[in-house]
Design a protein around this nucleic acid. Structure first.
Lengths: 222, 222
DNA sequence: CCGTGCTCGATTATCGATAATCGAGGAGTC
DNA sequence: GACTCCTCGATTATCGATAATCGAGCACGG
């Protein structure tokens, strides 16, 4: 058993490797565009090639890396153009989630959502940008889970890489408070169980920040 | 990258195995709920365990099979509910594609779309259901390609709408002619370069058949 | 007769090694 | 000097074998 390096010897190796590698990608230790060589990872964690390959394949499905036959795996470089492309897709998905979630949301879930907003506010006061983003993502994830559509949730999760990269771009341009408070109308629409309104608020929420983030280059013909 | 039928990704065993296994699942040779044993597939195709595992993992990501650690892989029962879940997601994506494609569509593309409709009509006359679905899928794919949003195209492809539609068709009888002719309003909206209308037609197109196939559970308040 | 623990066959998860493939860089030619 | 061909090092794709794990069936005690 490989216990010389980091003490990963419990569950399925593939999953542990995936989490480790993902953390390193998000920390920027693996820079975008940089290659991730299987043999290096093998030696570093003292495991064999197979679990490394499968972990990397999982990360590919999550869109954090890309791979080409015989040419290996590299951290996906997410261009500003791709981020711009994400907004209409994400906006549409969030609208679907809002519409589906509103009629079936329970008071418990509403409380959870309110908690997340509170947590975002607290993190904002502490200046903890990372925590804000975590609770932001969690807020949206709760809505998608409530929508009770496994396929929808799956597709949304596959956008994680883009969403993650997105916040790095927008971090400096948009105030944290504005981000946090813009979740309130969504919660209110859900409280009213108004499907159309909830969908609209979800859509606007995404489109608003999309327009903010790319206002200098969006020459959208309307 | 998610390759559809790109062309030069042939030599990789994993991909070939995935296609073979998928065909067998769809043919019903592997019944829903039935286990797929790695060692059996190994011997049957004369390959090693690694490519089999990776092919099965791909199929898992596509939701055609499910796997549990140390307990192997089994064919997922694609429930009617799951098929129903696809429709709102797909409808939203198609609307985005229609809106994006309409302002930039060329006459060449419009001609291609008209050709696909003609091909669908011909296939209908021949009673070739599979061909109809292929050209149907191609019609929509052309619209997504025209939308010029790589992420949107990627997400749409990940739905494998053609395959799911096939499954739907085998369960719910919908008139072929109705399917084919319902593409005409989309083409007309694109001809007018009317983004909002094209999006709306795309959405209605999908929602219509979703409602037909699963009318008992869609109770959209309107 | 029923429940419990154990053994065994089947299967997966992982390993270490080999074959196939790619990209860079040097020798040779015009 | 620029281009082409070829070799070589690096890396991936696949293989065959071993270790870990699970579930079913059986012996045993209550």
């Amino acid at each position: 058993m490989a216990d010389g390096t980091g003490g990963l010897a419990r569950a399925v190796l593939r999953d542990q490797l995936r989490e480790r590698l993902l953390a390193r990608i998000l920390d920027g230790e693996f820079a975008p565009g940089e290659r991730i060589v299987e043999s290096h990872v093998m030696k570093e964690y003292g495991v064999s090639q197979a679990p490394v390959r499968e972990a990397l394949r999982d990360l590919e499905a999550m869109r954090f890396v890309e791979s080409f036959p015989h040419r290996g795996v590299r951290v996906r470089l997410i261009s500003e153009r791709e981020l711009a492309e994400m907004y209409p897709v994400r906006a549409a998905l969030e609208e679907v989630a809002g519409r589906a979630a509103a009629p079936v949301v329970t008071d418990d879930v509403l409380a959870l959502l309110a908690d997340e907003i509170e947590a975002m506010r607290a993190a904002t006061r502490d200046g903890d940008v990372h925590a804000v983003l975590v609770h932001d993502a969690r807020f949206h994830e709760i809505v998608f889970e409530t929508a009770d559509n496994a396929l929808l949730l799956d597709v949304w999760r596959s956008l994680h890489a883009e969403i993650r990269a997105l916040v790095t771009y927008t971090r400096v341009r948009v105030g944290l408070t504005e981000i946090v408070e813009s979740h309130v109308p969504i919660l209110q629409a859900l409280r009213q169980r108004d499907a159309a309104l909830a969908g609209k608020e979800m859509r606007h929420h995404i489109e608003h920040f999309g327009a903010l983030a790319f206002r200098e280059k969006t020459a959208r013909p309307d």
